[in-house]
């Protein structure tokens, strides 16, 4: 082992095999992943088939809104440091039953939130799985902020105005304070009195904040899985 050449050869082979298995293979699998069409087959054939309401659609459907731009803001502002976007299966955590992490926002989650799978991130360059859960999971945040755009902006502008215990930083640089024109902008934030700007001014989100809000509102990772992925038995009707 005293020769440099042998050392490098053995070291190289120690590195190459795991790199192929742990990096290159998963990467190739992601590159080859395609959207899947829901299949509508005759129940008589006995083959599994998807819900009729999904006819003609494919999974995962395209992400609505200004997604790419919002995703970029999400990445640059470092949201992944504290927010995850994944629902773990029941063997690895309670995520599927967590209140407010799925479609239902009130009461006990009767139908478990679907665990996230590889296809859910198909349209993303880098899946924002997140590093820590300092804040709540955002896999299905779209449901949480549905019709509550002002709440979402308030969370971004001054998190502790919404939840006193929040440890999130405020993202005031995504908003501008400007003189009101006429009755004011539709998008102007409805702020609590202690944060409200001086008379005649208003706080409005910048285009970056709007893109980010679009992105968050589009986060609904619970589209039904096609049976061609789950391999489920056909339901008897």
């Amino acid at each position: 082992m005293n020769s440099l050449k042998n050392f490098v050869l053995i070291l190289g082979s120690c590195f190459v095999v795991p790199t192929y298995c742990m990096v290159a293979r998963p990467y190739a699998a992601e590159r080859n992943r395609q959207t899947v069409r829901y299949v509508m087959e005759d129940p008589g054939s006995g083959k599994p088939f998807d819900d009729g309401a999904l006819k003609g659609l494919s999974y995962p459907s395209a992400f609505p809104g200004d997604r790419k731009r919002g995703e970029l803001v999400y990445a640059r502002e470092g949201c992944v440091q504290c927010h995850t976007q994944l629902i773990r299966p029941d063997y690895a955590g309670i995520d599927q039953f967590k209140k407010g992490w799925g479609r239902d926002q009130e009461g006990k989650t009767v139908v478990p939130t679907r665990q996230t799978v590889m296809w859910d991130y198909l349209h993303e360059d880098f899946a924002m799985l997140g590093q820590r859960r300092v804040g709540p999971d955002l896999a299905n945040a779209g449901y949480r902020f549905q019709d509550k755009l002002n709440d979402l902006y308030l969370y971004l502008y001054a998190p502790r105005a919404r939840k006193a215990w929040s440890s999130s930083p405020g993202y005031k640089h995504l908003f501008i304070t400007r003189p009101k024109e006429g009755a004011g902008s539709d998008l102007a934030l409805k702020l609590p009195p202690n944060l409200a700007p001086a008379e005649g001014l208003e706080v409005v989100p910048t285009s970056e904040a709007r893109a980010l809000a679009d992105y968050v509102l589009g986060l609904k990772r619970d589209q039904p899985l096609p049976v061609s992925i789950t391999g489920a038995k056909p339901e008897s009707k």
Binding site: V8, L11, G12, F15, T19, M22, V23, A24, P26, Y27, A29, E30, R31, R33, M118, Y121, L122, E124, D125, F126, A127, L129
Partner: peptide, 28 residues
């Protein structure tokens, strides 16, 4: 000497050059 260039080059090639890593990205 060898491990850092190997790791750094591999990670950056896949994540910053090839891109479109999907869920393989966080794993890498």
């Amino acid at each position: 000497c060898f491990s850092f260039p190997w790791l750094y080059l591999t990670a950056n090639l896949f994540l910053n050059v090839f891109q479109k890593t999907g869920v393989a990205g966080p794993a890498i």
